[in-house]
Amino acid sequence: MSKHGFDRRTFLKAGAAAIVGGSAVGLTRYAYAHRPKVHIERVPSYEADLAAALRSSLTNLGLTGMFSGKTVLLKPNLVETAPWQTAINTHPSVVLAAATVVRDLGAREVLIAEGAGHRRDSELVLDQTGLGDVLDAAELKFIDLNIQEVDARPNRTRQTKMAELFLPRPLLQADVIVSMPKLKTHHWAGVTLSMKNFFGVMPGIVYGWPKNRLHTEGLPQSIIDIVSTVQPHLAIVDGIVGMDGDGPIMGNPKPTGVLVVGENLPAVDATCCRIMKIDPTIVPYLKLAAQQRMGPLDEFAIAQCGTDIDQVRQDFRVLDHFGYIKS
């Protein structure tokens, strides 16, 4: 029995129900009858062989075949820049490594796409983070999701008042969508990981900056609606240097030395929380994700592989008003 009164038998029943319930609301990608796998790879620094680390993760997860012949959209977290601050945005080396591996595994096309939340000026963010030069050298295409043509899609979970979501066409046309967030605490959401990262796919020309409409609709509710509607396929979390304290931009770098990879985003985020010594079952948006049967949060319900959580666990500080999520 877990401390939240949710034993394995109950979980399996819930899982079976999720398949039925999930299908009913179109959440099949998140319906789970088995324990979704999440892989933790220890990576000491951005100078390490990141491509090898990612290949190892994907091999362990049995996911090396998912990119062949596909258009793959990698969605890093690009917020804003600050001198000497490397913990705000997904590191260019991690983006490059992911693109390289995905290309090697047969992807037809690899796109790097983001709609920065704070700065409309994506070119400046690319320039100041160094990601622009990295993409140019590797001949990788960047798509500013803030200014793309959009199409409306029905909101699958309706946790907000939004009946439909306007999503950028390149996102809708991609075969494989990969969330590539940073491992960070967040002053409004508690943590920002693979699910919160999807605020960045919401076009600013429709939702404003700093994605204002989503904040007024409610952060946890918006996160659930976006992820359930977009249905991303994979998460690769850059936790080599994370951020604690007043994240997502004003916190402190927190070297943690991990890449966390998995298909089920709530399970990936729950694992990241445990690495950060945060209880995922009381993080508001994850709690809501579990209620919506999008994925498991309890440790026993996730097949952890690679490095043990205990070996990489770090004490990520949170702001006082989120003190209750610390485990």
């Binding site: 704070h118 409309r120 000026d121 400046l124 900056w209 700093p210 931009i249 004003m250 702001l319």
Partner: peptide, 18 residues
């Protein structure tokens, strides 16, 4: 100026050129 927030939770935020 940035997009329009000055201080959040006691921290002064950063300006943007545009």
């Amino acid at each position: 100026w940035n997009y329009g927030n000055t201080m959040v939770l006691g921290n002064e935020l950063r300006p943007f050129p545009s």
